[in-house]
Computed example of a mutant assay.
Amino acid sequence: MSVRVLKGVEYAAEVGYRPLLLDLYLPPADGAPVVLFLHGGGWQRGTRRDFGREFAGWRPSPFERIAEAGLAVASVDYRLSGEARYPAQLEDVRAAVAWLREHGGEHGFDGSRIVAWGESAGAHLAALAALTGPGIAAVVGWYGVYDLSAMPEPGDPSSREARLLGAPAGDVPDLASEASPVAHVHAGAPPFQLWHGTADRFVPMAQSERMAEALRAAGVPVEFRQVEGADHIWRDAPDVGAVFRESLEFARGVRA
């Protein structure tokens, strides 16, 4: 039996906004954990169909490969910063978690074992959801933003972070802290696997370094992997396939 795909499943409907949709990729066997995949794009672009530019030509797609390896996948859309400001994006991720927990049995996966896997802005949302609410058993974060105030030019009103928050992070420090995963690290948080390229020009690798340090200090299991020479979205990565495979192996090891 091959991977089953259900596209355009509505998981939430906020009044005044478009319906929020997810695509499900279901493995042949029932009872599998589920990957909640959150796309990147600086909170201002991207869709549930995006796994990242370096994977655009993969056939089967990365989503299908995860399902072939025995995990379900739910790749979700969330409200972008041009539609709604923070915390709308976090609320959408929490709604997706609730939907997966409620509907897992209906679709044959285990909604109590959710791995949040995100890239860039999606890694930020995956980490934030895992640290501030229930339901997520592990996190895979690729080149994520974890401390908004520590991003370059925190006073720039045109930055991606300013568009997310509605003001430059330097002007709204309390809100920027609230929206930063590093501020919510606590003992008992789920395990993390963090990846970052050493040559990332858009999100400094220090973001993942600081997050890993905070997790270790709190006693949270964390793996931090540096990818030598890789830029953002894995440009110039020496072996993006290895990054994918090791991330998948981490996700496969999830426990409720």
Rank of each mutant, 00 (worst) to 15 (best):
V93H: 08
V93R: 03
V93E: 08
V93Y: 03
V93A: 02
R94T: 12
R94I: 03
A95L: 03
A95F: 09
A96W: 07
A98K: 13
A98E: 12
L100E: 09
L100C: 06
H103W: 13
G104V: 02
G105P: 01
E106L: 15
E106M: 12
H107N: 10
H107C: 12
F109C: 13
F109Q: 11
D110I: 03
D110T: 04
G111S: 09
S112M: 08
S112R: 15
R113F: 05
R113K: 14
I114V: 15
I114D: 04
V115D: 07
V115N: 11
A116C: 11
A116L: 11
A116T: 10
W117C: 07
W117A: 07
W117Y: 13
W117T: 05
E119D: 14
S120R: 05
S120N: 11
S120V: 08
A121T: 14
G122W: 04
G122C: 06
A123L: 11
A123I: 08
L125E: 08
L125Y: 00
L125F: 00
A126D: 07
A126F: 05
A126S: 14
A127D: 06
L128S: 03
L128I: 08
L128W: 01
A129K: 01
A130S: 12
L131A: 02
T132V: 02
T132N: 09
T132M: 07
T132P: 01
G133L: 04
G133S: 13
P134W: 03
P134S: 13
I136K: 01
I136W: 05
I136S: 03
A137V: 12
A137C: 12
V140K: 08
V140A: 12
W142G: 11
G144S: 10
G144Q: 05
V145G: 07
V145K: 09
D147L: 11
D147E: 14
D147R: 11
L148Q: 06
L148R: 02
L148C: 03
L148N: 06
S149E: 15
A150C: 12
M151S: 01
P152N: 12
E153Q: 13
E153H: 15
E153D: 15
E153S: 14
P154E: 03
P154N: 01
D156K: 09
D156I: 00
D156V: 00
D156M: 09
D156G: 09
D156R: 13
P157D: 00
S158N: 14
R160Q: 15
E161R: 11
A162E: 02
L164V: 06
L165G: 06
L165V: 02
L165Y: 09
G166N: 00
G166L: 02
G166I: 00
P168T: 02
A169R: 08
A169P: 11
G170V: 01
D171R: 15
V172E: 01
V172N: 00
V172P: 06
P173S: 12
P173G: 05
D174V: 14
D174S: 14
D174G: 13
D174I: 10
